[in-house]
Design a protein around this nucleic acid. Sequence first.
DNA 1: ATTATTAACTTGTTATTTGCAAGTTATTAG
DNA 2: CTAATAACTTGCAAATAACAAGTTAATAAT
Lengths: 134, 134
Amino acid sequence: MRNQNKMRQSGCPVAFSLDTFGDRWSLLVIREIMLLGKTTYSDFQNIDEGIASNVLADRLKHLEAEGILAKHRDPDNRRSYIYSLTEKGRDLASIMIEIILWGGRHDQRPQAIRRAVDEIKKDRDGFEENIRAG
Amino acid sequence: MRNQNKMRQSGCPVAFSLDTFGDRWSLLVIREIMLLGKTTYSDFQNIDEGIASNVLADRLKHLEAEGILAKHRDPDNRRSYIYSLTEKGRDLASIMIEIILWGGRHDQRPQAIRRAVDEIKKDRDGFEENIRAG
DNA sequence: ATTATTAACTTGTTATTTGCAAGTTATTAG
DNA sequence: CTAATAACTTGCAAATAACAAGTTAATAAT
């Protein structure tokens, strides 16, 4: 794995947070679950940004170990697993929202997708409560 | 450099944000400037978490290219440069605050430093305005 | 009942990035 | 004039990531 499990023990809450969920792929997986309702390994493999299979496996394992994600069998299909956010994972909602809003403010590209940005601007609290409800 | 400059063009604001500032070292450098008043290359080299010199140079270059940091000569010492946050960089304040708060909520380690957490809890708006004032 | 397909990974290999030690250049301090 | 310092850069080994292919168990199709 990477750097995250070394836990440099600086005691800083920022470093702690980053060690727990702060890398590109972890946050994109969290986005998929939190915002796009994706739940399975194959859902994540289809992420637009294209994650490698071994890296995805590594990140899922790490996020589960950190208590951000939970993994359960799919009751309707014994070869599937369903990944979901734990309470601790849903508590990332406000960070995710701020990341989206910042992106919305500074992304000038024509292909920028504004859907989530607009939704949050319209009713931020509702958006957040919705995530936290699980 | 890494991955960040590939800009996978997914159009997603989360991916955009992560490509701009979303890796461990970038965020730790931003923490140093935003919260600890550090401004120089040698300040950053002394980060508790221990960043490699070549990686630091890479991240500073990237953050400057992305318009998060500005680099100016130190008027009092011609061999120094002073790095500072741009408006766009200071606009990361709310993300940083949420990251700190999340860390504060979930870091159970005895050595966890609560200073910033407590300050933000006491007066979040003041804390944020202070950062945004530059 | 076989065979094909799917889901979730794992493995092997190559490419990229990181970490670490040392070196460079332009100041500034003694 | 010599030693330090600031900000990098370079070289190289080690760790990670990307890419392609393979494995195993379970479901779907014939």
